[in-house]
Write a protein that binds this DNA or RNA. Structure first.
Length: 834
RNA sequence: GCCCAGGUGGCGGAACUGGUAGACGCGCUGGACUCAAAAUCCAGUUCUGGCAACAGAGUGAGAGUUCGAUUCUCUCCCUGGGCACCA
C-alpha cells in the first residue's frame, strides 16, 4: 500500500520550493507574448475571509493556465490601504491608522501565501506608502493642469453632534441618524474637489462596445452614464411687482414634441433661481419645503411610488410655444444634479407629472393622440414611437416618431432653446473630510488663491503623530505643522488643503503601479517624469485579464476607465482602455445561502478548512460550488467531495507507478484495444473541455470533467495498456495543475517528471482522436421521447429516416396514423409528427 | 423606487448556437470489506401510480411563438448586487 496523501507536507514542501526557485518571479521579456492577469486588490481589513479566497484562487488558476499555454504571465498583488475602517479602528483603540493598517497587511500577507497562488510578490504595492501616493498626487496635479480637476460647493451628510462628515453607511435608517451619536443628519455645503469625468461621458459610452467585458457590466455602465438626447427650452418669467425684470428658466426635456402640453414648470427645491422668483407671500412655505426636501436622500425623493409633494412659488412663466402663462412649482422629484434642475411638466404625457397635476389640480392638456384602435390609458400616454401630435400649432398631425427631432430643430430656429444631450453621470467628487487618505496637494493663499504644491515637493506626507479624537473630525485640521504652511508661490502664510482623496483614486491607476512598484522611490520627482519604468510599462500595459467582484461594475470600473483616458490625454501612453477582458465573480454566501456576516453568525473561516483539508481542496471546492460568475453558498459538507476526489487521484496515479508499464494488459488484445481507444478519446475530449473552460472561467464543469475522467480511469485500470495509462495520468495532472497546484506538482515528480509541472507545456487536443465513432439519435413522436437508434456520425438523412420509419416505437406510437412530417436534425434527433 | 443578474431533484449545480432535463458532487438507502467503527469500494436515488415492464407529470407563476422551449417574447412573483462618502 502506498503512502497516503498528506496535504500539509505536500503544500509546505512546494510552497517553499517554488519560493526558493523563484518560479513566480516575473520579468519583462519582449521575445515572449505577455499576459497581464490582475485581480482587484484587497482592502486590508484584518483577516483573509472566504470572499478573498473566492476572488483570488480562481483568477490564480486562470493565470496559471495561461502560463502553461506559453505566456509570460504577470500576476501581481497589493493592498488598497487607505480608507474609513482604519480611522474607525484608530478612534476606537486610540492608535494611528497606519499601525492598524500595516499590522493587518503583514497578517494578510501570510494568509495570502497559503493560497499557493503565483503572486509576483516582488511587485507588491501598498497604496498608503508615500512612495506610492506621491504619484497619486502627481496624477492629481497633472489632471488639475489639464483642467480636469476643479473645486465647487457640494453637499455632504453632516453630523452636527460629531461635527464631522458622514459616509453613507454611517447614516442610519429612514430617519437618517448618525450611527455614533444618533443626531439627525443634515446637509452641509462644502467647497470640494471634483474630476470632470463627464467630459469623457461620450467616450466612456462608445468604447464599451469594443471591450471583452460581460454584457451585464456594459449595460450597467451604459445606464449609469445615462445619455439622453433632448432639448433645453427657455421659459421667461412673468414680471411681477416683486420680480420686475423678466428673468428666464431653462428646462431640459427629452420630449420637446410635447411642448404644447407643458402646463407648469417644476424646479428642484435647491435651484438657485427659487429665492429670486418667490414673492414674500410664498416665501415661508417655499423655505419650509426646501428644508424638508434636503433632509431626504435622493433615492426616497425619486421613488416613483412615493406620493408627490411640492409647493407653488407664486411665480409664473410663459410657455414659448403657446404664450400661455404657466405656474412655477418646486418639488423634490426634480433633482438639481440632472439636466438643468428644472423641468417643463407635461401631465398629459408623463406619468410623474400626471400624478403631480392630479394631486394639485393643475391643468392637463392632451397633445398626443394614441394610434387609432388603441385605447388611451387612464394616466399619461407616453409612447415615444406611436401616436400623433394634436393641438400643437404647426406640428399638429405629425407622427410622434418624426416630431421629436423636428420640434427640437424648430425650437432652436425660433431662438427659445437648443438641442442638447445630457448624461445622468455626474462629475466625480473626490474630496473626503478624512485623515487616512492621500492628501490633496493644494495650498490656499490669501494673495495667490489656490496654488498647487510643486511637483518637486511631493509627497505631501501624512503626519505620523496625528491625534485621534473620538469626535471623528479630521486630525489634519488640528495638526500644528500640516495645515499652516507658506505659499509655494509668494511665501506668505497660507493654508494647506486638509481634505484627502477618495480611495477610488488609489485604485484607478494601481494596475500601472504594479509594473514598476514605487518608481523613483525616495527621489525628488518632476512634472515631466514618467510615473513608471517606460520599458516595463510598454511591455506589460494594459491589463489582459481583469477579475473582481460585480459590485464594482459602475464605480471603480468606470473611474479607472476615466483615469486611463485622462492619462492618455496628458500624453503618458496611447491606448484608451485599462483592461481588455473582464470577468466578475459572484459572492460566496454562508451555508444558509445568506451573505456572510458576523451578526448572522454564518461566517466561514477559510483558515480552518485549509488546515484540515489543504489549500488545493479549498481552491477546488470554491471553483466547484457553482459558476464563478454567479457565486453560491459555502456548504461545509460538500467540501468532502473534492477532498475524496484528490485522495482518489493520488491513489490512481501512484498505484500505476508502482506497477510495471503494460503489466495489467494481461487481458485479451481486443479488450486492451477497446479500452485504449476509449481512454484516448475521452482524454482528448477532456483536453478540449479543460482548455475552453479555463479560458472562460467555467471551473465547475472543468472539475466535473476531471472527476468523470478519473472515474473512467479507475474503471478501466485493468484493461488499458501501460503507455496509454501513463499518458492519461500525465495529461490529467497537467490539466488539473492550474486549479490544484500543489498535489499535481507532487504527483508529477513522483511520476518521474523533471522540472515544475507549472512550467510544462499545456496539452494540445487532437480533434480527430476526440471524435466519437457511434452516436445516439433520439426518436421523438410529437415531441415526446419514444426511442433511440445508434448510428455513425454523418449518416445520410435517408438512411436515418428509413431506420426511424421501421423502428418499433414509431409503429407503436403512431398507431396507424399518417406521418405528416419528419423533422431530422443531423446526428441528433428525429421528430415524427403525426 | 430605478438599473443589472438569478430562480432546475432533499441540497450545490449540468444541459454548446431552441433538440434525450437532472452531468458532476453532497446527502440518503442498500450491499461488500471489518470483531466493530472509520476509511474505501459496488449498486440505487426527480415526483406520482405500478411487483415490474411501463405510463403520466415536471426547470418560480401565467400566457405566447415553435414540429419541439430550462433556452426566445410578454406579464407577474421571489432572491441577490449596485444606486455616486464602505471598499
Amino acid at each position: 500500500m502506498s503512502e497516503r496523501y498528506d496535504h500539509q507536507a505536500v503544500e509546505q514542501r512546494w510552497q517553499a520550493a517554488w519560493e526558493e526557485q523563484g518560479i513566480d518571479q516575473t520579468k519583462a521579456d519582449p521575445a515572449r507574448p505577455k499576459w497581464y492577469a490582475l485581480t482587484m486588490l484587497p482592502y486590508p481589513s484584518g483577516d483573509l475571509h472566504a470572499g478573498h479566497w473566492y476572488a483570488m484562487t480562481p483568477s490564480d488558476a486562470a493565470a496559471r493556465f495561461r502560463r502553461m499555454q506559453g505566456y509570460n504571465v504577470f500576476f501581481p498583488v497589493g493592498f488598497d490601504a487607505f480608507g474609513l475602517p482604519a480611522e474607525n479602528a484608530a478612534i476606537k483603540h486610540n492608535l494611528h491608522p497606519k499601525k492598524w493598517t500595516y499590522d493587518n497587511i503583514s497578517r494578510m500577507r501570510g494568509q495570502l501565501r497559503q493560497m499557493g497562488a503565483m503572486w509576483a510578490w516582488d511587485h507588491e504595492v501598498v497604496t498608503c506608502d508615500p512612495d506610492y501616493y506621491k504619484w497619486t498626487q502627481w496624477f492629481f496635479l497633472r489632471l488639475y493642469e489639464a483642467g480636469l480637476a476643479y473645486r465647487e460647493f457640494a453637499p455632504v451628510d453632516w453630523c452636527p453632534g460629531c461635527n464631522t462628515t458622514l459616509a453613507r453607511e454611517q447614516v442610519v435608517g429612514l430617519d437618517r441618524l448618525c450611527e455614533r451619536c444618533d443626531s439627525p443628519v443634515v446637509k452641509k455645503e462644502l467647497n470640494q474637489w471634483k474630476f470632470r469625468i463627464t467630459r469623457y461621458a461620450e467616450e466612456l459610452l462608445t468604447e464599451l462596445g469594443a471591450l471583452a467585458w460581460p454584457e451585464r457590466v456594459k449595460t450597467m455602465q451604459t445606464n449609469w452614464i445615462g445619455r439622453s438626447e433632448g432639448a433645453e427650452v427657455v421659459f421667461s418669467v412673468q414680471p411681477t411687482t416683486d420680480c420686475p425684470e423678466g428673468s428666464t428658466i431653462s428646462v431640459f426635456t427629452t420630449r420637446p414634441d410635447t411642448l404644447w402640453g407643458a402646463t407648469f414648470l417644476v424646479l428642484a427645491p435647491e435651484h438657485p433661481a427659487v429665492s429670486a422668483l418667490t414673492p414674500p407671500s410664498h416665501r415661508a412655505s417655499v423655505t419650509a419645503y426646501t428644508e424638508a426636501a434636503q433632509r431626504l436622500d435622493e433615492r426616497t425623493r425619486t421613488a416613483t411610488d412615493k406620493e408627490k409633494t411640492g409647493v407653488f412659488t407664486g411665480a409664473f412663466a410663459v410657455n414659448p410655444a403657446t404664450n400661455q402663462s404657466v405656474p412655477v412649482w418646486i418639488a423634490d422629484y426634480v433633482l438639481m444634479g440632472y439636466g438643468t434642475g428644472a423641468i417643463m411638466a407635461v401631465p398629459g404625457h408623463d406619468e410623474r407629472d400626471y400624478e403631480f397635476a392630479h394631486k394639485f389640480s393643475l391643468p392637463i392638456v392632451t397633445v398626443i393622440e394614441p394610434p387609432l384602435g388603441t385605447t388611451a390609458p387612464t394616466g399619461a400616454y407616453s409612447s415615444k414611437t406611436e401616436g400623433t401630435l394634436v393641438a400643437s400649432g404647426p406640428f399638429t398631425g405629425t407622427p410622434v416618431s418624426e416630431a421629436i427631432p423636428r420640434v427640437a430643430e424648430w425650437i432652436e430656429g425660433q431662438g427659445f432653446g437648443k438641442r442638447t444631450i445630457t448624461y445622468r453621470l455626474r462629475d466625480w467628487l473626490i474630496s473626503r473630510q478624512r485623515m487616512w487618505g492621500t492628501p490633496i496637494p493644494m495650498v490656499y493663499c490669501a494673495r495667490c488663491g489656490e496654488v498647487p504644491v510643486p511637483y518637486e515637493a511631493l509627497p505631501v506626507a501624512l503626519p505620523d503623530d496625528a491625534a485621534f479624537k473620538p469626535t471623528g473630525e479630521s486630525p489634519l485640521k488640528y495638526h500644528p505643522t500640516f495645515r499652516h504652511v507658506s505659499c509655494p508661490r509668494c511665501g506668505n502664510a497660507a493654508e494647506r488643503e486638509t481634505d484627502t482623496m477618495d480611495t477610488f483614486l488609489c485604485s484607478s491607476w494601481y494596475q500601472y503601479g504594479y509594473i514598476s512598484p514605487y518608481w523613483k522611490k525616495g527621489e525628488v520627482i518632476h512634472r515631466d517624469d514618467t510615473p513608471w519604468d517606460p520599458a516595463a510599462f510598454s511591455y506589460w500595459a494594459p491589463v489582459d485579464q481583469y477579475t473582481g467582484g460585480i459590485e464594482h461594475a459602475t464605480m471603480h470600473l468606470l473611474y479607472t476607465r476615466f483615469f486611463s483616458k485622462a492619462l492618455r490625454d496628458i500624453g503618458l501612453y496611447d491606448f484608451s482602455e485599462p483592461m481588455i477582458r473582464l470577468v466578475n465573480q459572484g459572492m460566496v454566501l454562508g451555508p444558509d445561502n445568506e451573505k456572510m456576516s458576523k451578526s448572522r453568525g454564518n461566517v466561514v473561516n477559510p483558515d480552518d478548512y485549509v488546515r484540515d483539508y489543504g489549500a488545493d481542496t479549498v481552491r477546488g471546492y470554491l471553483m466547484f460550488l457553482g459558476p464563478w460568475e454567479q457565486g453560491g453558498p459555502w456548504d461545509p459538507s460538500a467540501i468532502e467531495g473534492i477532498s475524496r476526489f484528490l485522495h482518489r487521484t493520488w491513489r490512481l496515479v501512484l498505484e500505476e507507478v508502482a506497477a510495471e508499464p503494460g503489466s495489467r494488459a494481461e487481458g485479451t488484445t481486443t479488450d486492451v484495444g477497446k479500452a485504449d481507444s476509449l481512454v484516448e478519446r475521452r482524454m482528448h475530449q477532456l483536453i478540449m473541455r479543460a482548455t475552453d473552460g479555463l479560458s472562460d472561467f467555467r471551473f465547475n464543469t472543468v472539475i466535473a470533467g476531471f472527476m468523470e475522467f478519473a472515474n473512467l480511469l479507475s474503471r478501466e485500470r485493468g484493461s488499458v495498456s501501460g503507455s496509454v495509462w501513463r499518458t492519461a495520468c500525465r495529461t490529467l495532472l497537467q490539466l488539473m495543475a492550474p486549479i490544484f497546484p500543489h498535489i499535481t506538482e507532487e504527483l508529477w515528480h513522483r511520476h518521474g517528471e523533471k522540472g515544475s509541472i507549472h512550467r510544462s507545456q499545456w496539452p494540445v487536443a487532437d480533434p480527430e482522436k476526440a471524435k466519437e465513432d457511434t452516436i445516439t439519435i433520439v426518436i421523438q413522436v410529437n415531441g415526446k421521447l419514444r426511442g433511440e437508434i445508434s448510428a455513425a456520425p454523418g449518416t445520410p438523412r435517408e438512411q436515418v429516416e428509413a431506420a426511424v420509419r421501421s423502428h418499433p416505437a414509431v409503429g407503436k406510437w403512431c398507431d396507424g396514423k399518417e406521418i405528416r412530417k419528419l423533422i431530422v436534425i443531423p446526428d441528433k434527433l428525429v421528430n415524427v409528427v403525426v
